[in-house]
Design a protein around this nucleic acid. Structure first.
Lengths: 185, 185
DNA sequence: CCCTCTCCATACGGTTGCGTATGGAACGTA
DNA sequence: TACGTTCCATACGCAACCGTATGGAGAGGG
């Protein structure tokens, strides 16, 4: 099995894995080399230095982090409510979410990462906004609802509170239904 | 000025500062020593090792991270709505919020930190829950609203989307008012 | 068979950081 | 003055990394 040849993508995949488990500072080239069963020599042939690895990593995340999810949701069709529920399921089961959270923390101190996260967030918020508009065409609080939903999506993984015997998943779905409900006025 | 004596609390304060700016992995004893204008010798007199510094750091955060805010909010009195709006203002202006966010990311890979974050979240959620109960005594979606509000508080700092000419602060206050509104049913 | 291109191993110098060991300065106290 | 306590400086060994330099194995082409 020990194919001693490692492609550029394999290095990036290993970097994403390390990012998800230990944050940016855990992405070390000599560690990745051990994981991949090779030495640094391989790395410095594929990349010029550690910075370019990290750079291409976030670049790839931006490229595939938005359209994949949206396409996956739209594939099944349905009305706005159905698609929003599906959006939730898709993003929750995502295996790469841990990496994304580490990446968001990383974005707080790296301008390039921050810029890419912003573009992804803009795209996703645009999609969520469109769903809410489809539900309530004449509502004036679309933006607030979209921000609440997206915050729930992200904050869910940074908040560790317990909810009694109700359970987190149940509370979350209740929250989504609340956001999709008609205007209170 | 160069008081060459550094107390234990000064070391912790410097550690919090480093945590806020660069995450846990930026909390290095030799770096802190340079910042404080002393050498490692001072550190290893006050602490046994780096681990105990980090441990006492999160311990102090748990101790002061909850009651301070709640006391500050309750001090002015007012009804539940007024206190919730005040809760928002207080937490937003908090200078130590960057450290808390770094700490939450850290909690994803350190069980001790995770346990402390959970206790803090439970306490805060309890307070938010109580506010919502005071507003809507017979509502059955209290937990969902509390979770949404708390998610907004946290997610706000991890989300970098733009909101057109409306502006983030305005969207946030609209979201809070939406959560405080009566039940849609 | 040789040559070249691709990919990786090995070895090196330099930096950063941890924890320890030991000495010393400042200061109060007997 | 002699002495002990408190707090920090200095120096050391060790480990983990980074980036570079250089050589070498393997495959394909001529």
């Amino acid at each position: 099995m020990a194919t001693k040849k490692r492609t550029k993508d394999e290095w990036i995949a290993a970097a994403v894995e390390a990012l998800a488990e230990g944050g940016v500072d855990a992405v070390r080239v000599e560690r990745l080399a051990r994981t991949l069963g090779v030495t640094k020599g391989s790395f410095y042939w594929h990349f010029t230095d550690r910075g370019t690895l990290l750079s291409t990593l976030v670049q790839g995340w931006e490229a595939g982090g938005t359209q994949d999810v949206i396409a996956q949701v739209d594939a099944l069709g349905g009305d706005a409510r159905a698609r929003m529920r599906r959006l939730w399921e898709v993003t929750q089961g995502d295996r790469g979410l841990a990496a994304e959270l580490a990446l968001r923390d990383w974005a707080r101190r790296d301008p390039e990462v921050a810029a890419r996260v912003q573009r992804v967030d803009d795209a996703r918020m645009g999609y969520v906004r469109a769903l809410f508009v489809e539900m309530h065409p004449d509502a004036d609080d679309i933006e607030a609802r979209a921000m609440l939903l997206y915050s729930l999506l992200i904050g869910n993984y940074f908040i560790r509170a317990r909810h009694g015997r109700r359970g987190r998943p149940r509370v979350l779905s209740e929250a989504i239904e609340l956001l999709m409900a008609a205007q209170p006025s």
